[in-house]
């Protein structure tokens, strides 16, 4: 893309627009400072631990930095005392992927259902809100006791999976509400008028149009599950997920290994965020190219 030179008329118009804009009120500057402070507080502490995780063997939990190496990352994956980080990492990723797929499918279908009123919709809706606001540990205890009562062994791919879904699905459905509210039903009606079956109109029309929203739901599903702690505590069985590993580390590890683990999980999170946002941007760009008027 080559930048086009600005014509003199355009430049004049821009200058007029700039001059005509009202002066910013004092509140703008106050709020701008508040915003800056907020973003600094949001990112500052995180940046601190990423930096501190790069210390060498003399490193401690606070500044100043002592040396520069990847020692604590090696330590993290090789030492026994830091627990089963590698296994936890694998389990968390697998569980999160499973949760993501089920959340996208479940929330999409629920979103379709909630477009109109149906018998019992209020009950389902309030159950969903209940599941969203119920204290995670309480729900975890309930699921743990239920499995115990039924004689089923709890594990990350059964009880923990269900516990995660009881939290990611309602979240996903709420996002679907927002996504669906911008969907124009006449597209679907047009497809039906042209002879598409119900499944064809959903699969060939609704899904492609809603694709960016579905990616957003996937992002929610993945990260909410990947970082979920309270609901997993009583439901994961004998093998830990990553947040449980981090939790036990916060209680007994006092070396920069802890920060190294923070850096590693954040990199994983950022990769996922980047992939999802990139995917959404790609879809929007392709759409803009195919249909410049929209």
């Amino acid at each position: 893309m080559r930048a086009r030179p600005i014509s003199p008329e355009q430049r004049a118009r821009l200058r007029r627009a700039a001059a005509g804009a009202p002066r910013r009120p004092w509140t703008f500057w106050v709020l701008a400072i508040l915003f800056g402070a907020y973003v600094l507080a949001l990112y500052g502490p995180m940046l601190c631990i990423y930096v501190l995780s790069l210390q060498d063997i003399r490193g401690g939990l606070v500044f100043p930095m002592k040396g520069l190496s990847l020692h604590w990352f090696v330590d993290l994956f090789t030492q026994v005392r830091t627990g089963d980080v590698k296994g936890g990492f694998q389990r968390s990723i697998s569980l999160a992927l499973l949760v993501t797929v089920l959340t996208v499918v479940g929330s999409f279908l629920a979103g379709l259902a909630f477009r109109q009123r149906f018998k019992g919709d209020g009950v389902v809706f309030y159950l969903m809100i209940g599941s969203l606001v119920a204290p995670g540990l309480v729900l975890g205890i309930g699921i743990g006791l239920l499995f115990q009562y039924l004689g089923l062994p709890p594990s990350w791919y059964t009880s923990a999976l269900g516990a995660h879904l009881s939290w990611t699905l309602p979240f996903g459905v709420l996002v679907m509400f927002a996504v669906m509210s911008r969907f124009d039903r006449s597209w679907e009606e047009a497809a039906r008028d042209l002879g598409a079956t119900r499944w064809q109109s959903i699969w060939l029309v609704v899904v492609p149009i809603l694709a960016p929203g579905l990616l957003a739901v996937a992002l929610f599903g993945f990260t909410l599950s990947y970082d979920e702690f309270a609901r997993t505590l009583q439901t994961s069985g004998s093998l830990n997920t990553l947040p449980l590993e981090i939790w036990s580390m916060t209680l007994n590890v006092t070396s920069p290994s802890l920060y190294a683990l923070g850096t590693v999980t954040t990199i994983a999170s950022f990769l996922i965020i980047g992939m999802c946002l990139g995917g959404i941007a790609l879809i929007q760009r392709r759409r803009a190219r195919h249909n410049p008027s929209v």
């Binding site: 279908l109 149906f118 919709d121 159950l127 729900l139 205890i141 309930g142 006791l145």
Partner: peptide, 27 residues
């Protein structure tokens, strides 16, 4: 329309009943 809506909503219900309603009842 009701049947269809319940078909769409069934995955959500199939998660909410065993992993929200029943556990709370157990508690």
């Amino acid at each position: 329309a009701n049947t269809l809506a319940w078909f769409y909503i069934s995955p959500l219900v199939l998660v909410l009943v065993p992993f929200f309603v029943l556990p709370i009842l157990v508690v």
